[in-house]
Design a protein around this nucleic acid. Structure first.
Lengths: 243, 243
DNA sequence: TTTTCTCCCTATCATTTGTTAGATCGTCCC
DNA sequence: GGGACGATCTAACAAATGATAGGGAGAAAA
């Protein structure tokens, strides 16, 4: 067991999702793992591949994606440090999507077997992890609404709102702004748009005074206005999800 | 406890997802519940509302949906008899989406409290139910890809392929065809299209010989061709997911 | 039978978004 | 400094999809 600050943050996050006693925390912290580093755009997991390990993201950003037969890519979710990505891997036999590094990132890779033993022996930990996957599911549903039924401005604005909230939780920004670790092409793949149109849309949002950009930093002069333009409501993030 | 055939089908489905012993099955079958009937388009659960009960769909079809502020609706998933819908309700404090009856349907409504006790006391049952929610999550991801990165023909074709597989599993159709319980407007809300365009697209699929329609029955003269046109691969349904 | 209602279907036109092709800008590397 | 590179940004045009409007068919109700 190593002593990485993100590990502790992860444990406190889980502790909000189910009542964990000292033994539960202990069991979580003594999970075996290997530290691995991935370069930007390298694959952590491939669709159709076996699921040997789950990964706790320690540093950097990663995303899940799937490819259409046309080769077009859809980004399914973006993960920040502290996220337990690919928890499905412990329970499902085959990966149904790809997991790719967004920035250079460092992860703790936990063997499937150890994780399953933890789940089988520690009901409350299993409960907390389950809630984690349910919140992931809620975010997928919101993205589905985003891509299916919002126009490009709302769509991008919504994504920016979600990042603001989630980066704030991860201690990497706040409602006033943050540094977006994505290219416009990746934003396009999150929203089902083309890079050209993302560019147009960002420009339009900026002209409307909803955001101010400088490089990849986004600042949000008026959170309420951006939120309203996006139709954003944080309900789906289940931030209240205490035990 | 009543003796509904769908209950037993549900238990065998779960038994494929984790090893369940006799006590586990017994516990599942003796969950308390109330039988309720819902008329088409009535709400079983409302977004933002409390989550008092989870519902096992016994007969009929239901769907989850969310509304954009514009009033546009996105259908998130469609459920068939035997599906344990709204299992999130047992673990999350607030519903993040609506659950609506597609056809007249009959459900067993299980109190949140009883379900949580079952989960806490029967680890293997919890495991099986967790896997169920993970497969739901996988389907959300595929829908996200569908809506985000497939054009209208592929999108509709993909939806028709998924229904074929899932209705087959529920004993309500097969790869040769089935009766679709949805209007074109609802298909539009599943795919992020407009009803007019769904109509055009269905016509185009029929003219291409990929499907034959008669009322709401769809027959599939050549499964391989439809599958290829849709870019459909059943991997994401995790049909293999045995213990 | 007539009425009413919902759904299906189509035509026409409008709009959003996509495509293609480059120009520009900053950074890294030599 | 001078490329080389990836990312951003723009313009002009094309294509897919949306909006509006209404006809028609079938089922249920009166």
């Amino acid at each position: 067991m190593i002593d990485h600050p993100v590990l502790h943050r992860m444990v406190s996050k889980l502790a909000q999702r189910a009542t964990l006693d000292e033994a539960d925390r202990e069991a979580l912290l003594s999970l075996p793992f290997r530290i691995k580093t991935f370069e930007p755009s390298s694959y952590l997991v491939r669709e159709g591949g076996p699921t040997e390990e789950s990964t706790l993201l320690l540093e950097g950003f990663a995303y899940r994606q799937k490819l259409a037969v046309s080769g077009d890519r859809q980004i399914l979710s973006v993960h920040v440090p502290g996220d337990f990505v690919d928890l499905e891997g412990a329970l499902l036999n085959v990966a149904d999507h790809n997991l790719q590094a967004l920035t250079r990132c460092e992860v703790a890779a936990i063997p499937r077997k150890a994780l399953r033993e933890l789940i089988d022996s520690h009901g409350r930990v299993a409960h907390a992890l389950w809630v984690d996957t349910l919140i992931d599911g809620s975010i997928f549903r919101e993205w589905l609404l985003n891509v299916g039924r919002r126009d490009s401005k709302e769509r991008i604005a919504h994504l920016l709102c979600e990042f603001a909230k989630r980066l704030e939780l991860a201690g990497l920004g706040d409602e006033n702004g943050y540094t977006l670790p994505m290219t416009q092409e990746q934003l396009a793949d999150c929203t089902g748009l083309t890079p050209v149109h993302v560019n147009r849309t960002l420009k339009a949002l900026e002209e409307a005074g909803l955001i101010v950009r400088s490089g990849r930093s986004v600042s949000i002069p008026d959170w309420e206005r951006l939120r309203d333009a996006a139709g954003f409501s944080e309900l789906y993030l289940h931030l209240d999800q205490a035990a």
